[in-house]
Design a protein around this nucleic acid. Structure first.
Length: 388
DNA sequence: ATACTTGCTCTACAGTAAGC
DNA sequence: GCTTACTGTAGAGCAAGTAT
């Protein structure tokens, strides 16, 4: 095959080239056109000469982009392609942990598939711990010994193991992602895990409220103004999460059948949660005035901020004289159910926990009946303890 | 069991409506 | 107009939760 040279590439000259045995076309505006091997189309390149070396950057594919539109948009297309290329060249020059971590921080911020809470936590760990300790470390210096000395040992003196575990996990994620995308040639963190440094695992703390605290708790709740009282009781009766409870809407409650249906977008595990509630719980909710969609709201059009509800709990906790939070209510309900002899799996289902394969066999109409009975028995406890 | 992600809590601070 | 109480936001830390 021979090569043809033209001063200007046009759609007509490209079509003509396909008929001849031509593979390349050249344009004086520093653009080359390469016809592909299958001769079904071709690619426009930007061309730069660096000494004797010719550097090409892909601009666009023909016929998806015609020559006419390419040359019309040439400055913009060229700028984009070169910026891309520069970015690629720049990232391949990551030499220190700091550079990789900075990239990851910018990456998770720009990539909307990461949740807001992950970006917040990960940025905090990078900004406060990882950059401070590893910023200058070159990729080849990142080994177990280095991390042990500069990251693990200093941190274990001041922070909970769960925090260190989280920090290491962000570090691993950043490097794994950078490696996967070809931004670094080797992943020096790949073989390092949290358990490289300690065999101790972070412990889950037991709930602060014990079943024998229930009476005092109910007494304090009953002393609250109506809206707070209903909020606390709704959460206690159903052991729902604070976020799920705060977003409760009137339309989520039905009378026949008696049910509270929490939509998937409000739950932690993104699965709809249908709770078979009691008549009593239904009536309790409906003692509140209806002002807009949300049940717990100051003005009717938006729900209370979680932070506000946490403060409600803080003052309730002060009144009871035990330091607890909304999540301890959930744990308390769980403990009480256990004491009442409610099946463990039914408890898990009421909490909307993911169950493994074996437990999934429980998923049938019968279990729903048991959930309903459990919540009924749990509700009866309150009728005995108090008048609501 | 380990790895990874998400939610909750705490602190600090800011805006705003209510009460004086 | 000033103070105060209530509500909301943001950043950091911790632990619960799900995925592997």
């Amino acid at each position: 095959m021979t090569k043809a040279v033209t001063k200007k590439i046009t759609d007509a000259s490209i079509r003509a080239a396909f008929k001849k045995e031509v593979r390349y076309l050249y344009d004086s505006r520093r653009v080359e056109f390469h016809i592909n091997a299958a001769r079904t189309g071709g690619t426009f390149y930007d061309v730069v000469y660096k000494g004797k070396k010719r550097q090409r950057t892909k601009l666009a594919k023909w016929p998806a982009i015609t020559a006419a539109s390419l040359f019309q948009e040439l400055p913009a297309i060229r700028a984009n392609a070169l910026a891309d290329r520069k970015a690629r060249l720049a990232v391949s020059t990551y030499h220190t942990a700091g550079e990789v971590l900075m990239w990851f921080m910018q990456h998770i911020d720009a990539d909307k598939t990461y949740s807001v809470s992950y970006v917040s936590t990960a940025s905090s760990y990078i900004g406060n711990h990882l950059l401070a300790k590893l910023s200058e470390a070159t990729l080849s210096e990142l080994n177990k010994t280095r991390l042990y000395r500069t990251l693990y040992m200093p941190m274990q003196a001041d922070y909970a193991l769960s925090t260190i575990k989280g920090v290491i996990s962000v570090l691993k994620t950043a490097f794994a992602r950078a490696y996967e995308l070809g931004l670094i040639a080797r992943n020096p963190i790949a073989d390092i895990t949290f358990s490289s440094f300690t065999t101790t695992q972070p412990e889950a703390k037991p709930g602060k409220l014990k079943p024998h605290d229930l009476k005092a708790l109910i007494k304090a709740i009953n002393g609250q103004p109506t809206q707070k009282r209903v909020f606390f009781m709704t959460q206690l009766l159903h052991a729902t999460r604070i976020g799920e409870t705060s977003l409760a809407e009137w339309k989520q409650f039905s009378n026949a059948p008696l049910e509270w249906s929490i939509p998937e977008e409000n739950t932690k595990n993104n699965t709809e949660h249908r709770l078979p509630i009691t008549q009593h719980a239904y009536d309790l909710i409906h003692t509140l005035p209806k002002r807009g969609d949300y049940i717990f709201s100051s003005n009717g059009d938006k729900p209370y901020a979680i932070r506000t509800l946490e403060r409600w709990y803080q003052s309730l906790s002060d009144e009871v004289g035990i330091k607890f939070t909304s999540h301890d209510i959930r744990k308390l309900a769980r403990d009480c159910w256990q004491d009442m002899g409610i099946d463990w799996v039914i408890g898990e289902m009421l909490l909307n926990h993911e169950r493994d394969g074996l437990d999934k066999r429980y998923m049938h109409a019968h279990s729903r009946e048991q959930m309903k009975r459990a919540l009924g028995e749990w509700g009866d406890v309150f009728c005995v303890c108090s008048v609501i």
